[in-house]
Write a protein that binds this DNA or RNA. Structure first.
Length: 947
RNA sequence: GCUCCGGUAGCCCAACGGCAGGAGGCAGCGCGCUCAAAACGCGCACAGUGUGCGUUCGAAUCGCACCCGGAGCACCA
């Protein structure tokens, strides 16, 4: 008895490439790759070395994806775009002979698991590990050729032990600004002891108390505890790094208000690396927009510090235009500036304009009122006020050091406390902001740069000769000098006369490194009885995250700016209080109860991939040198291709570069940059549909009729956005694998467009990739009998030429990470084969090899059916025969006055003169006997005739 | 406001000084297969490259100006 009658699928040819068959093939090959360890890449040394491996001595290639945070929702079709891209590239590079390292890990510490734990009581480790398991199964189903031995998760004790170890390296280092590199802290201490380095107050090292010595040393460390204004987010119950605060003063995660609070926190001295983080960008093959964002974030400004004497202490300002100092007609301090207290006068001096007083009876009252008003305003309000300049006179004057002029001092919120020195010399003639302020307060304006003749604007910040810039005593004279020369001369004068010096400042602040959370790496730090931090020795690593009953930090009313952080770990008193022998006998210590920020684990994971099982070091130097070392003089080294989203432009990518440079300075790695080449993949977004009440309806159930969209009977409107639960437009790779197979899904994602372009997902278009693979299958397997349709007879000339043209093009496309055009060429080749009665083996085999980076399972399957016992993963990628790339004859289009008017076919090797003659003959009727004025022959391309 | 990226058939995209028979795909239409439909196959049609000016023998491609869309920065002295 057969089931054919009952089975609607029965009239599908029995050996067609269907989703079921694809699934069966895919699972089988995934198992086989795993059993055989097909994608394991050999290391030069250590447990992962394998001298017998086919790529053991080959040129290396390290391909890296930004590893994911394993969320509970799993992957949607947008997530694996980059992973598939790197997999195609990695498989191709392996076939052209390289030893390719490609794996995938998990950035698994972080807020969502902790928040879930707070809600449900489930331990974050439980949910996180379950999520990792789910991600792994989803990724495996896609057939990604990862080295399974190298996958790490940041929450593995064996991993974060090395995160803690790197923290200790940073803690035990200082930045030698003369040598421009980090050095071990012991060398600093040695210099102090030897007297070769002066102490801050000049006393001898031996004269200092242990506490004083400690303070000096701790002030040099690259990781240090600071009592400083930090971003306190009561809604999250934790502090945040500057990079995690949005421009409107809210938390990057959760969008809660963020307040400035003075709190004791761990910091990392990333500012010491400001110059190198900017300069080394030039050595990197990164998208320019990302480099630009990093440059902007670091914000290096060169200029000078200048001191303006006052009745109290001198006001120190930073300016990028010291050449304009003769135009400084007033000064502005940030409202929070420390000198405001001592400078503010008790009574208004004679001649004070009414507009300067803010309507107050005394300068002190005006300052208080202004400060109060400024404090109430949020950053958003300040921006919304259209930047109208406000401020008050504080009743005091400063002296301009170049000409002795007495200039009034104001406070105003357009000067930021956090940048430069929090004070400026105002030069309205050359600065738009100062001009605006001067107009509001009727302050004098002196141009010190001659604007061009036709200049009709206000402030003139451009280039020109200096004017009005000579001191009355006849000494200093900048007049006539252009900006660069004027700057050099004034800086020289300032330094010679003790009024200031050349200076560089940064917008970049030190990195706030502690978080009041549970689900993160504990610090390898304890505090002694005096409350001084003490680093634990390496032998005590890892410091394991203890179990707690309550995972939540104390959170507060999001608006409660005066609340104080309380960490989850601090409640485990039995863990916090320890007795340890740190070299001077057993003593009582208390543990650090903050944890590291989520970025810590992702600062170095690429290094652990290189040597994931090494128990003695975070990475063996020989393995690091092989995979990431510089390849030529001047080369920064690093990962050969790093693919990920643009959203990490300043956070992860800046932090990781910083850590890597510290490790480089300390001699632990040979590369001075972690990621030599960066590539930003585009985002896959999707349409979503809203009903007339604005609610989202299930996108998969919406139907399009005549350009309108219907959900059942109801017409809905189409919008475009990120895939997600809230828009009800999620499509998962699992669904696609079920409906079409992983190979089809991979081919579709790669063929939609260039990898770096964002694009809309369209499920109904996936069928195109499916048909393509079905056609490939059909050219090799008879759908009715299952017999091979491949013949050993040679290919005809046309097919052979087509093959070689395609091979040449596909190589070029893959070298340039242009998967979409490579796939188009493979479709073209396949379409060339469907016309044939049988497929010549000399074409079938190269086609499968070229297809295998994109659709590895079906390629392996057919390769095996063609009689090969081994996986094609290490087969050489096809090479085009150059002699078949040049056509025997070339058809030249002939243009007359820019329009194509005829064609001639001539032998490929025809001389220019012969082409010319033939071309002119072809368009003779167009010329109508006239003599052409000019004939341009572009050999191999075309002929252009000017009549 | 400033900077960067991008505008090519209904849609996603190629070509990036040299023939837009658009490389390719989706959707559409026709035909074949089928009792029929789906699937599959074969074929057809559809834009002249956001707008204007310029350079050139020749411009989607280079330059200038503008329009539209996206991203980043936004009192950083």
């Amino acid at each position: 008895m057969t089931t054919e009658a009952a089975e609607p699928a029965a009239d599908i040819p029995p050996f067609r490439y269907t989703a079921e068959l694809a699934g069966e093939i895919e699972i089988r090959w995934q198992d086989r790759w795993a059993e055989r360890g097909t994608f394991r890449a050999p290391n030069p040394v250590g447990p992962l070395a394998d001298p017998g491996h086919p790529r053991a001595d080959a040129e290396k290639l390290f391909v890296l994806d930004m590893f994911p945070y394993p969320s509970g929702a799993g992957l949607h079709v947008g997530h694996p775009l980059g992973y598939i891209g790197t997999d195609c590239y990695a498989r191709y590079q392996r076939m052209v002979g390289r030893n390719v390292l490609h794996t995938m890990g998990f950035d698994a510490f972080g807020l969502p698991a902790e928040q879930y734990a707070v809600q449900t009581g489930t331990h974050p480790r439980t949910t996180t590990e379950a999520n990792i398991g789910y991600y792994r199964s989803q990724l495996r189903r896609l057939g990604l050729g990862h080295d399974d031995r190298r996958s790490v998760a940041t929450i593995d004790t064996d991993y974060y032990r090395w995160t803690q170890w790197i923290f200790l390296q940073i803690y035990n280092s200082w930045y030698d600004s003369v040598a421009a590199r980090a050095r071990p802290i012991a060398e600093l201490v040695a210099e102090f002891e030897a007297g070769t380095r002066a102490t801050p107050d000049g006393r001898g090292w031996a004269e200092l108390s242990p506490t004083e010595r400690r303070r000096i040393v701790d002030d040099h460390r690259l990781a240090y505890v600071s009592q400083a204004p930090v971003n306190w987010c009561p809604g999250l119950g934790t502090v945040l790094a500057n990079e995690e605060v949005t421009p409107d003063g809210r938390s990057d995660r959760g969008n809660f208000p963020v307040f400035k609070r003075n709190l004791k926190q761990w910091m990392m001295r990333i500012t010491a690396y400001g110059d190198r983080l900017i300069e080394d960008l030039d050595a990197l093959d990164w998208p320019e927009p990302i480099k630009l964002q990093q440059r902007n974030w670091i914000g290096r400004s060169t200029g000078a510090h200048i001191e303006f004497p006052t009745a109290a202490a001198p006001i120190r300002v930073f300016t990028t235009r010291p050449d304009t100092v003769f135009g400084a007609t007033y000064m502005v301090l940030a409202p929070e500036h420390p000198l405001v207290e001592s400078l503010a006068a008790d009574a208004w001096p004679g001649g004070t304009r009414d507009a300067w007083t803010g309507g107050q009876a005394t300068p002190r009252a005006a300052v208080d009122a202004y400060r109060k008003a400024a404090g109430v305003k949020t950053d958003i309000e300040r921006q919304a006020e259209n930047r109208e300049k406000t401020g008050v006179f504080i009743g005091a004057y400063a002296s301009n050091p170049v000409n002795g002029a007495q200039i009034p001092i104001f406070i105003a919120d357009y000067v930021l406390a956090g940048y430069g020195t929090g004070a400026i010399m105002a030069v309205p003639g050359q600065d738009e902001r100062d001009w605006e302020f001067a107009e509001v307060f009727e302050l004098p304006i002196v141009r010190t740069v001659q604007p061009p003749k036709n200049f009709d604007g206000k402030a003139y910040p451009g280039e020109g000769p200096a004017i009005n810039s000579a001191a009355p005593d006849g000494g200093l004279d900048l007049d006539g000098l252009f900006i660069a020369d004027a700057k050099a001369k004034i800086i020289e004068w300032l330094e010679a006369n003790g009024h200031g010096s050349g200076a560089v400042t940064y917008r970049l602040r030190d990195w706030l490194f502690s978080r009041q959370r549970y689900w993160g790496e504990p610090f390898p730090i304890v505090y002694d009885e005096q409350g001084n931090p003490v680093a634990l020795p390496e032998s005590m690593l890892p410091v394991e995250l203890p179990e707690v009953d309550d995972f939540a930090p104390r959170t507060f009313d999001p608006e409660d700016a005066d609340s104080d952080p309380e960490t989850p770990l601090s409640r485990r008193k039995d863990w916090v209080e320890v007795e340890l022998d740190l070299g001077d006998g057993p003593k009582r210590y208390t543990r650090e109860t903050n944890v590291m920020p989520q970025w810590a684990g992702s600062c170095w994971y690429e290094l652990r991939y290189l040597d994931p099982t090494n128990p003695d070091r975070f990475v063996d130097p020989a393995n690091e040198r092989y995979w990431m070392g510089p390849q030529s003089p001047g080369d920064p080294g690093g990962v050969d291709l790093y693919v990920g989203g643009q959203e990490h432009a300043v956070l992860h990518l800046l932090y990781a570069r910083f850590w890597h440079k510290v490790l480089y300075d300390l001699g632990h790695v040979s590369s001075f940059e972690p990621y030599r080449r960066l590539y930003n993949q585009g985002m896959i977004q999707a349409y979503a549909f809203q009903n007339d009440r604005g609610g989202y309806v299930e996108a998969a159930e919406v139907e399009e009729v005549d350009g309108k969209y219907y959900f059942g009977e109801q017409q809905v409107t189409r919008v475009y956005g990120k895939m997600g639960k809230s828009l009800r437009n999620v499509v998962t790779p699992d669904e696609m694998c079920e409906a079409y197979g992983a190979d089809t899904f991979r081919v579709y994602e790669m063929s939609m467009g260039p990898l770096d372009v964002s694009r809309p997902w369209e499920t109904r278009a996936v069928i195109g990739a499916y048909r393509f693979l079905q056609r490939v299958w059909r050219t090799m397997v008879d759908e009715q009998t299952g017999e091979l349709r491949v013949t050993d007879a040679p290919a005809d000339e046309q097919t052979r030429r087509l093959l070689h043209r395609i091979v040449d093009g596909v190589r070029g496309d893959l070298d340039g990470i242009r998967m979409n055009t490579a796939i188009a060429k493979l479709i073209e080749l396949t379409n060339g084969l469907t016309r044939l009665d049988a497929t010549p083996r000399e074409v079938a085999e190269p086609l499968l090899l070229m297809l295998s980076p994109f659709a590895p399972h079906v390629a392996e399957e057919l390769w095996q059916r063609l009689g090969h016992a081994e996986s094609l993963a290490y087969e050489p990628f096809p090479v085009a025969d150059p002699s078949l790339l040049v056509a025997e004859t070339v058809t030249y289009p002939v243009q007359v006055n820019g329009k194509v008017r005829g064609r001639v076919e001539v032998p490929a090797e025809a001389a220019e003169e012969a082409i010319r003659t033939a071309a002119l003959a072809a368009v003779a009727d167009q010329l109508a006997g006239r003599e052409p004025r000019k004939v341009i022959v572009v050999t191999g391309r075309m002929v252009s005739v000017v009549a």
